[in-house]
Amino acid sequence: MSTPMLKVAVLVAPAIHPVSGRPCTHPADSAALALGLKLAGSSERLTVLYAGAAADEALAGYLAQGASCVTVLPTAEDADIAPLLAAQIADAELVLCGTRAGGGQGSALLPYQLAEELEAPLLPDALSVAIKGGSVEIEQFLPKGQRRSLAAALPVVVTVHERAVPALPYSHARKEAGKVRRLMPVAAKAAEWRYEPAGRRARPLVAASRASGHERMLGAIAADDGKTTGLVVKQGDPVEKAQVLLDYLRDHQLVDF
């Protein structure tokens, strides 16, 4: 459900393809774009924005996925883009972006910085976004199939999970019809990153046993001689045997009933 006059901004950035290393669309940004297109209802009320140093072709994928125009804020590679983006989309009521960029620093911090700049709440990792009157309700992605509902009053920054909605299919005609509009380059101060040596070295995992996989397997499976940890149940009716299995599974917390 979209309120008729909602102004939506979607932030996108090219990702680096994991196999070829070429610029491509990022699934989470694509999902944000698809959501934005749905919620804004028309392309006039939708701003698709990118800040960075990528070439226009790197953004073509988003045009092919339905953005009629991608506005580019040309900045240096390491610029602190949150204030620039915030100035650009100050009038947007809903800001959507992927949870984490597939390129650049990819620190997933940008939405937080942006929310701070805009003085708007941030709803992270949305699987679905619904506009209810003046507020936004999202279903939040949590690991292991868990979900949580969050709501906040507009204006809001929402980061979108890549599985939220399928992106619009790639269309060559849309790509050709779409435009990349470059704004005047802005001088931005470089992001303030303080680099320091990592404190702790990653500790290699120590195997619990030095025995070979085959040996450990032999140890784990049951044999009649009783030397191994396994158990061979030959007595009893099927219910009793099943009980042994169930006890085992409960002991090892493999079932929780």
Binding site: L168, P169, S171, H172, R174
Partner: peptide, 13 residues
């Protein structure tokens, strides 16, 4: 269909 809408079914896309 493919060039204007990209609606290729299955694994085609």
């Amino acid at each position: 269909v493919t060039l204007t809408r990209g609606e290729v079914p299955g694994k085609g896309r």
